[in-house]
């Protein structure tokens, strides 16, 4: 599984790195950045949860 943030859509709500700090991080002003682009098997659910809580629908998951 791969995760990707559409930086045109991300507006810095910070839900991804709050819900899944293993996979996402904040840049220096709070926009989301992918920390672990290749998601380990045991974090697939967490990745889906982060994506489904993004108010901008900015996270894409390639399974």
């Amino acid at each position: 599984m791969k995760i990707h943030i559409d930086t045109d859509l991300c507006s810095g709500h910070g839900r991804c790195y709050t819900i899944a700090p293993e996979l996402f991080d904040a840049d220096d002003v709070g926009y989301g950045v992918v920390k672990t682009p290749e998601v380990p098997d045991d974090l697939h659910d967490l990745a889906r949860r982060a994506a489904s809580n993004c108010p901008e629908l900015a996270i894409r998951i390639d399974e």
């Binding site: 709500h13 709070g30 489904s52 108010p55």
Partner: peptide
């Protein structure tokens, strides 16, 4: 609830500056 995509802080480029 595990899915909570609320937009209390808005959406788009004007997302509430003070949300954090």
């Amino acid at each position: 609830r595990t899915v909570n995509r609320h937009i209390a802080f808005g959406a788009g480029p004007h997302r509430c500056l003070g949300s954090h």
